[in-house]
């Protein structure tokens, strides 16, 4: 229920290819992070999934069936470009958006009441959208995306502009939706959020898919070449190693440093050397997993 498959999807606007031969799958009960710098083709890809744009080549299927007006009713979408009808009351607004998904007022009313309460907007539900703060409007749009109990939920930068309390609330709800077996697509360029939330990753750059897999696999694929050290005492040989090109200081302070070891340099030999150094008490030696940020930057730079 709700597995989304993209096969060789391509979209061109005139001479510009916004998305080229993109293929990936998103599974129910998992969160897929769609990453990429601004203008990489994330939004174009999302719009093809949402059946707002039609791909020039390739196809998008939900549960094996090509997306179309039918799938729009199975899908909730929080676009990055936020907007509500300014002069319409929140309740009416949500009822209309639900009706467009094919949900009758009788059915949508209790759901609206539930979500409005869940997101702490009870006092605002009879107010017009233009009276709400940006963060509150964003929560209303989030409700619109989940109101129809969609199988597929697409959230484009859902946390941007939210305060920490509301971000946390949203994160909780997203985790809950995931546990309920929904397929969630989460587009962002905020790596720490993606790392916290996502199970699977797709990295898009220049309209192409450059990296995909589970978060764990991707991290494993990248060598642990950063080393965090903390010690008491002096280790002048580290500077000598840097001069020789064996390592590179990434951060340095009184207690220690983070370095990147060169290809030919083994962490084991460095550890031995540290332990052998007199008057130096080592209390941290950790090979760090590459951060998604780093993987992202390195992948994009290597293109």
């Amino acid at each position: 229920m709700g597995s989304l498959v993209l096969q060789g999807v391509t979209k061109r606007f005139g001479k510009v290819t916004a998305a080229q031969d993109i293929s990936f799958e998103a599974e129910p009960g998992r969160i897929l992070g769609l990453l990429g710098p601004n203008g990489a083709g994330k939004t174009t890809t999302i719009r093809m999934i949402a059946n707002i744009l039609t791909p020039d080549n390739g196809r998008v299927t939900l549960d094996g069936r090509v997306v179309g007006p039918w799938s729009q009713e199975q899908m909730g979408y929080l676009p990055e470009e936020r907007g509500l009808y300014k002069k319409v009351k929140i309740n009416d607004q949500l009822r209309y958006l639900a009706a467009l998904k094919g949900i009758r007022a009788r059915e949508s009313a209790p759901r609206i009441a539930y979500w409005v309460k869940r997101l702490g907007l009870q006092e605002w539900s009879a107010r017009k959208a233009q009276e709400l703060s940006k963060g509150m409007q964003q929560k209303v749009q989030f409700i619109a995306a989940v109101l129809s109990n969609p199988r597929l939920i697409i959230l484009d930068e859902p946390f941007s502009g939210l305060d920490p309390v509301n971000s946390e609330l949203l994160r909780e709800i997203v985790a809950e939706l995931k546990a309920n077996g929904r397929t969630i697509l989460f587009a962002s360029h905020r790596m720490e959020q993606v790392e916290q939330l996502c199970d699977d990753i797709c990295l898009i750059a220049n309209g192409k898919l450059v990296l995909k897999g589970t978060l764990r696999d991707i991290k494993r694929r990248y060598k642990r070449d950063r080393l965090a050290l903390a010690y008491d005492g002096e280790a002048p040989f580290l500077d000598a190693m840097e001069r020789k090109g064996d390592l590179q200081f990434l951060e340095r302070n009184e207690d220690g440093c983070i370095v990147r070891l060169a290809e030919h340099c083994h962490s084991r030999s460095l550890l031995e050397r540290l332990l052998e150094t007199p008057d130096l008490e080592l209390y941290r030696f950790e090979l760090l997993q590459p951060s998604l940020d780093e993987i992202f930057i390195r992948t994009v730079e290597s293109l």
């Binding site: 949402a50 059946n51 707002i52 007006p69 979408y77 907007g83 509500l84 958006l97 749009q141």
Partner: peptide, 17 residues
């Protein structure tokens, strides 16, 4: 013009042709 000036259009067209 309303949908486009208020930017609500993307939500709407994800439900309606």
């Amino acid at each position: 013009m309303e949908e486009r000036t208020t930017r609500v259009v993307e939500i709407i067209v994800s439900s309606v042709r």
